[in-house]
């Protein structure tokens, strides 16, 4: 199926019993990379990202039947991915508390554990700096900086006003700059 088909055509194919599989595959192929990176920037590890992404895409399959296009398809998929990612992070934090390891920087440590990690490179320091932010602020920064998402779309996705998102983004950028300069 042509990956450049618009969302409406893909959804129409999905809702047609004969082309349901093709419609779904088209949607997955169109958005899988964006969703993957959206999740991976938060979870760092490929294995965790893969688990969460598969869960997200299964939920997309189950939810597409009732998707009524009140919001854009990719905004809806991003929302599912965001919720699943935040749920995963919460579980990881609880597990760290149970194992009396709550003081450790779980995701900062995961960045450092990457086989290609090089603290002398700015792109790796940037990842460490992003991981030092609260999760919601990380989301805002990633969506704007990497996904280049307009504020109005982010507002729809995160149920937050554009002004608050803009302030959050600017605040995050300042903190990242300070982190990298002092590293």
């Amino acid at each position: 199926m042509n990956l450049h088909l618009d969302d409406t055509s893909l959804l129409t194919a999905f809702h047609n019993h004969a082309t349901k599989e093709k419609g779904y595959n088209g949607i997955v192929k169109k958005y899988q990379e964006k969703l993957y990176w959206h999740i991976r920037r938060m979870l760092v590890s490929h294995e965790d990202t893969n688990d969460v992404l598969q869960m997200v895409l299964v939920k997309v399959w189950n939810g597409l039947e009732n998707f009524r296009e009140d919001s854009k398809l990719y905004t809806w998929m991003y929302r599912i991915a965001t919720n699943e990612t935040l749920t995963f992070i919460e579980k990881e934090k609880k597990r760290a508390i149970v194992s009396l390891d709550q003081d450790s920087d779980i995701y900062g440590d995961k960045v450092k554990a990457d086989t290609h990690f090089d603290e002398n490179q700015l792109i790796w320091r940037l990842q460490l700096a992003i991981k030092s932010l609260p999760e919601k602020q990380q989301l805002v920064f990633n969506l704007r900086y990497y996904d280049e998402m307009p504020y109005h779309q982010m507002s729809e996705l995160l149920d937050t006003s554009e002004g608050a998102l803009k302030a959050s983004y600017h605040h995050a950028a300042k903190k990242i700059e300070e982190f990298i300069k002092s590293y």
Partner: peptide, 20 residues
């Protein structure tokens, strides 16, 4: 603004069938 992380080869080619 590049991501330093690596994705396993052919990951996105196989993902749709794994998800199905």
């Amino acid at each position: 603004s590049q991501m330093p992380y690596i994705v396993p080869a052919n990951y996105f080619e196989t993902l749709p069938s794994i998800v199905r």
